[in-house]
Design a protein around this nucleic acid. Structure first.
Lengths: 255, 255
DNA sequence: CGTTGTTTTGATCCTCATCAAAACTTGTGG
DNA sequence: CCACAAGTTTTGATGAGGATCAAAACAACG
């Protein structure tokens, strides 16, 4: 999914503060197809996108694009691969609060804040486009359309976080997993990929963390959904074979 | 806490779509003391606040200031009393995702979105200042300082939502309650009120919903904290008698 | 002062966590 | 290329935290 690293630079897979490889400019797709930045602008304002998106960074699996506490100067748009947003507590526990696949924006939660609130960690070898916050704000001040789009993105993110709160607080384990899979499916569809068959880029542990469960529970639930003919699961390959059955899990009889 | 309603208008306590009582203009405090709108601007830009904050609405306990699905045209700043933000699901379950006391902004999660994502319901008889979104956006476009402050507020709200996700997904019941009480305490302190003694404006049921628990569990935990000498609880009056003990609950030995 | 909603407390149950171990996958170095 | 090491996933047995069911004490309200 990612072009191989140039020879000479050893590939560290463990999370390390090592500096990442930055290309000089993002790909043309970023401007043409809205693939990198989910923002639609009138033709005559498209030029500013070139200004906003300044570089592409390549991350190895497990590396952090940014870390909680760091000053915010960039946002990131996922160009290839996928990332997770992780919040940590002083006592060392941590929880995943979001996943980001290609075409989605990361770091929005930290927009206009001094420091990042989460770690942004690559789930696999990935690429992200850097977006300078200052430049973005400058352009946004001049373009109401751009500003409005950004606010829409932030609003969506907030609504999403509230839905997550609902899921974690009110849903049972099986419902949470069903919601997670349907959400992922929907996002792949938005990317133009198959909504029924996809490969999970995160471990059972990651899914469990996101859903407020333990990895054994997630594994058991996957197995159960497979047995019930709702999914075909083999390792990280998933195929939704009975979407209605999966959807039905969201409104359990007990409530 | 709220001036009495004028005679002649019957007071409905049950949640009803009845129209609320709107005063012509917000109080002077809103501009002078940043009490109503937690935004600080340079002196020469303060005038626009008068433009942004157009009216004060009075809500009775249980009434909805706005409802999920309604088109967004106003934000609200709590002037007196308190509110809860509630998300609902198709099957009728609902969960509280936030509380708002005087001096805090509501509806931010819906900024720049077409429709509200939550219900905003008064926990007691309350007052809120209406803020016209269009006017606010227009002023923000002209004032980078104002825009930056708004983004900061939104960023805070998002960070808060992520912390809630962490709490719901990773914390035990007792920790969640401790966090809730300390958070509330901190917000009362920010208002200039006592951080140690306050009156909960929400029911046990509300607290339980917010924390992803059942009301019986919340009640039992309150009793336990009282027995352990950490709190004095009688009905909704709470006094924190051992803040260190309360804080210590946030980092349990088991983890 | 009865009605209704809120809170407390008790007894029991169930979902999911925990502990444990084996099957399997992936990456590494000889 | 194979063998070993480390990480991931599955499955089982057991336990605990919090939910559920039930009812009484208490406060608020008309």
């Amino acid at each position: 999914m990612l072009v191989s690293v140039q020879p000479g630079e050893p590939m560290k897979v463990m999370p390390a503060p090592s500096r990442r490889n930055a290309a000089a400019h993002p790909c043309e797709q970023c401007f043409q197809s809205r693939f990198c930045l989910p923002i639609a602008l009138p033709q005559d304002e498209l030029a500013c996108m070139r200004d906003i998106m300044q570089a592409t960074v390549r991350m190895h699996k497990g590396e952090a694009l940014f870390e909680a506490g760091q000053p915010v100067s960039k946002l990131y748009s996922v160009h290839a691969g996928s990332f997770k947003s992780v919040v940590g507590s002083p006592d060392g526990r941590q929880q995943i609060v979001g996943f980001h696949v290609a075409g989605e924006l990361m770091g929005l939660e930290s927009f206009a804040m001094r420091t990042f609130a989460t770690d942004g960690v690559a789930l696999e070898d990935s690429e992200a486009c850097e977006i300078d916050v200052g430049t973005l704000e400058r352009h946004a001040a001049a373009s109401p359309a751009l500003l409005h789009q950004i606010h829409g993105l932030i609003g969506n993110r907030l609504a999403c976080a509230q839905q997550n709160q609902f899921a974690l607080g009110s849903m049972h384990a099986e419902e949470r997993l069903a919601r997670f899979l349907l959400d992922l499916s929907q996002r792949y569809r938005a990317r133009g990929l198959s909504p029924d068959a996809f490969v999970l880029s995160m471990t059972r542990q990651d899914i469990a963390s996101y859903l407020g469960l333990k990895l054994e529970t997630v594994s058991r639930l996957m197995t159960r959904l497979h047995r019930d003919g709702i999914l075909q699961v083999e390792q990280r390959r998933v195929r939704i074979t009975n979407r209605d059955g999966l959807t039905a899990l969201l409104a359990p009889p007990g409530h």
